[in-house]
Design a protein around this nucleic acid. Sequence first.
DNA 1: AATTTTAAATTAAACGTTTACGTAAACGAT
DNA 2: ATCGTTTACGTAAACGTTTAATTTAAAATT
Lengths: 335, 335
Amino acid sequence: MPSTIKDVSIAAGVSIATVSHVINQTRYVTDDVKAKVYAAMEKLDYNPNSIARSLRSQQTKTIGVMVPSIRSLFYSRVTDGIEETMRENGYHIILANSHDDRDREMDALRTFKSLRIDGLMMCPSVGEHTYLKNMLPASTPVVFIDRYPLDYEGDHVVIDLSGSTYDVINLLIKKGHQKIGMITGYKGLSSTKARFEGYQAAYQDNGLPYDEELIQSGAYTSDAGYENTKKIIENTDATALFYADDPMVIGSLLYLHEKKIRIPDQISIVSCNDYEWTRISNPPLTIVKKPSYQLGIKAAELMLDKIEKRVEKDKIHKFCLSTTIVMRSSVKDLI
Amino acid sequence: MPSTIKDVSIAAGVSIATVSHVINQTRYVTDDVKAKVYAAMEKLDYNPNSIARSLRSQQTKTIGVMVPSIRSLFYSRVTDGIEETMRENGYHIILANSHDDRDREMDALRTFKSLRIDGLMMCPSVGEHTYLKNMLPASTPVVFIDRYPLDYEGDHVVIDLSGSTYDVINLLIKKGHQKIGMITGYKGLSSTKARFEGYQAAYQDNGLPYDEELIQSGAYTSDAGYENTKKIIENTDATALFYADDPMVIGSLLYLHEKKIRIPDQISIVSCNDYEWTRISNPPLTIVKKPSYQLGIKAAELMLDKIEKRVEKDKIHKFCLSTTIVMRSSVKDLI
DNA sequence: AATTTTAAATTAAACGTTTACGTAAACGAT
DNA sequence: ATCGTTTACGTAAACGTTTAATTTAAAATT
């Protein structure tokens, strides 16, 4: 059995309160008493019981982190950034995967509630999220990451997908592409919506019409990438493709390779994220680099600010991180 | 403020004990009392405080999971398997990254200890791990994942790296390769050791000598992959390369592309894991598929068995999951 | 010398559960 | 009628902390 604060107090010949104050530096204690306490702690290999501490102090130093899937390259980096920042600040994280499923999501939320998390960082799935209002105590800060609910105003830090999509589409148009396919994620997500907006704005600003069939939404899987590429290729005369996430690219490339469609000769490709493999794929991919790790850090910092009340309570805090385009050989200049 | 069991007991007009027993189904309660309790719980939106529960029951339903880095494709899948299995069984996981650094590792362990985790699942870094004996209560089960400490007998579930390396090297030898480079991870890891053994056994069984310089150890990064490939190419006349992990492959391919060394014409390549991108890389890679997700599940199951004492206490439980080779176009037949 | 102020440590009451123990009522058997 | 037994529930003591309220001792003031 691990030793308790009581054991330490007896060994040091002082009261429990004094030991607690020494540990937490929460009131003045003379140096020799301090020394005795430290010696006793050392001797007994004392390690504070954070469960008891949490029960009493009503804070758990725990942050609930919910992402669609931890095995995603993007979200694992976001999580890495969160974990790192939280750890440095004395918090730890409880991980849950929603798998973009509302039931799973609510399930995890119930667990989080039961665990009395000090803060929730979540990437919401499709659908209503007003239930969050009643789910957690009003005092529990919430930060949405990468996506935010469309029916619920809340603090969030996301990637500037509207802007980056605009930039990519605009770039492709300037290079002479007129029919640009986009394979994006689920409809009903803030991220997908932003991509639509960027896409449309770019077409509009260039005075070009676009075909509805050029945009395909669906799961973040290589299968969906394969199928959606097939649809676009079969139904349109797209000369370029832009993707929301990397599994889609992989499926898409599998289709294109299968059909012996040459990149970038017959079709140009732009992907998302800067995962290393895009440098050695066939061909190396032009990408828009999303600051995933930085998103995690920024969101964690916002969360810490909210917990420590360093931030206005009645304001909605929104952060939108910008991307950079990395040119490689998967895009052809048509002019 | 969330409502407590006391609120429920008052609302239902019964004692706290009865409410607790209803919740936990730990003793017979008449149906109408049960109904009153459920009604009160519903009305008050009662959600048990797991902190209080943990303090009293001395179990936290929490598993500490430590991996080198959650952003690794391999470990994120392992973690996914663990999370899934644990969640299904009412446990949740606390995540920590060791970054293959002993200080970070011990730091995380201290946090875990403080959190009174019910079990530890860790992938140990290089170096002594006897300190684990004193770190956690003797009753806390430990399962090592993917690697195990070389100085400490403990339950573990790992991948059969010795066997898979043997198979790959043997296969390459049968295809006429005599000088096979291997780029592996840190020396002093059980995994690296296993790979050495498999490599040597394959050479020995085929009656071939091998060059020390063919095997390069180092970090699991693309930089290390680049550098180690350079070393092997410059110092040996290797006709094939085998890698421990995918970041290394990427660095290696960058080097080979840079030097315009054609794959598989001039050099054959075999990588690890079945990450989707290996299907669309240039060229598509022959790989040995490691069951990462399954490793997570198996390890979690072992942990649950240990927690529930469904497993012999004084026996060391070792599981070694086997791999499969997926042939693609990065290997050339020299015969 | 008596009183007030200050400093340093102690006491004890929470925090929200679980659970060993206790009890009251109902029932059968003698 | 009395006495165990059983059934169904209640009481209260933990679990290991934090912290408000209090005490004690020493120092400063009158």
